[in-house]
Structures are given as C-alpha cells and as structure tokens.
Design a protein around this nucleic acid. Structure first.
Length: 203
DNA sequence: CGGAAGATCCACT
DNA sequence: GTGGATCTTCCGA
C-alpha cells in the first residue's frame, strides 16, 4: 500500500480519525487516532534517526513505510510509531493518543484502571496507548496492514478540524523543537495533554 | 568506562 | 508543580 510511503508531515494529519485495530489472542481492541506527531528522519534533531543514527534499537525506522516502530523509553514505557516514507529514510509518525472504541474492558484491565475510566485515562498518551493495547518490543517491525496491529480507514478528521503545534518533550532539539509537527483533532477530549495552541497569549 | 538524559506517567505537595 | 521509577543509548574522558 502506498498510503504510508509518503513524507511523514503528509501522512500524519491523514492518520487522524483512522482506526487502530489490535488483535491479541481472542480479544480485539479498536481505537480511533486523535493525536500524532511527525518525525522527519536524519534532518530532524528530535528524531531517533537524527543524523542517520542507526542502532539495534531503532533499526525498524529504516524499513519501508507501513510497519511498526516500537521503542522502550524512560526505563518503563513503550511508544508506537508508524514507519512512513521510503526504505532507509528513517521517517515515522508517533501515535500519541486515541479514543477507545471497542474492547474497552480489556483496555481497562491492561491499564489497571479502577472504576469508570476518565477521558484520556486509557489511551490518552503514547505510553498509555501501548499499555492499553498490550504493545511492546515484540511487535517492533510488524506490518500495519494485517495481523496483530492494523491501521484501517475510519472516520477522517476534516482539515479544518485539525490543529497543529510543536511536538511534546523535545525541547533539546534546537530549531526543530518549534516545527509544527504535532497534529490533533480539535475539541477531542481523549488527547494526551492540554492544548498549548489554545492557551491564551501563546503564539 | 561512567554519567547523563530521554518522543512518559503517576503520586504527592 | 515536582520528583521518582528504571533501562537503553550516546558522548566525553
């Protein structure tokens, strides 16, 4: 499929609204993507592929678009990316937040949530998303078209309802830190944190 | 070879 | 708002 074999900043906004389907044994969980970030590979200081870096950890980034890149961070969390673009360019889209659609009981269990989950508590953050969907390094490199993780057409977010802003947690990245590569569906409660672009007095 | 920092989350103040 | 958990990777000595 060619959807993923395009530049990250082009694919990222189009991923919003699509469904992420996770099959795990007999259970199936579905979420709707509401927040993503584009990472541009070698020229992007915030990218794990910055300067062409290539290690056992980020090897999957150099696969052709349409596969998963799952990495381990802060000693305790996993994050899921969709690898995009052509082979060996190191581009990816980080899947940051989603709205739970079905299989919610399983997600509640995986996250260890007591009682009725609040908005964003299950899949409102890159590491929460992975924990809820039971995604870890075992799924690094798998295809996203069929199998354990699938990204399928859903309920697209129209352009005018997409908001952009700087990416989260990459202040060290020099001028790349300001690039507007974070995309989210406006007025969506299941995002990962308050909207910097909505705050009064900010740019 | 050692130290520091990281695409995070949660509990606590 | 701040700090701890906990491990891989990078960079400087």
């Amino acid at each position: 499929m060619d959807f993923f074999r395009r530049p990250a900043e082009e694919v990222a906004p189009e991923l919003l609204g699509r469904y992420l389907v996770r099959s795990c044994g007999r259970s199936r969980m579905v979420v709707r993507l509401v927040e993503v970030e584009a990472y541009l590979g070698a020229r992007d200081r915030a990218s794990h592929a910055w300067g062409g870096r290539r290690t056992p950890r980020n090897e999957s980034l150099y696969l052709a678009g349409g596969r998963a890149y799952v990495y381990f961070i802060y000693g305790m969390h996993y994050c899921l990316n969709a690898v995009v673009g052509d082979e060996s360019n190191g581009e990816a889209v980080l899947l940051r937040a989603a709205a739970p659609i079905s299989g919610i009981t399983a997600m509640v269990e995986h996250r260890g949530v007591e009682g009725v989950p609040k908005a964003g508590q299950l899949t409102g953050g890159p590491a929460k998303l992975c924990q809820a969907l039971q995604i870890d390094r075992q799924l690094d490199g798998v295809g996203l078209q069929r199998g354990a993780i699938r990204i399928v057409e859903g309920d697209p977010v129209p352009r005018e309802r997409i908001v952009t802003g700087p990416r989260v947690g990459i202040d060290y990245a020099g001028e790349a830190a300001a690039w507007p590569l974070r995309f989210a569906a406006r007025d969506e409660p299941h995002v990962s944190r308050p909207w910097p672009w909505k705050r009064r007095g900010s740019a």
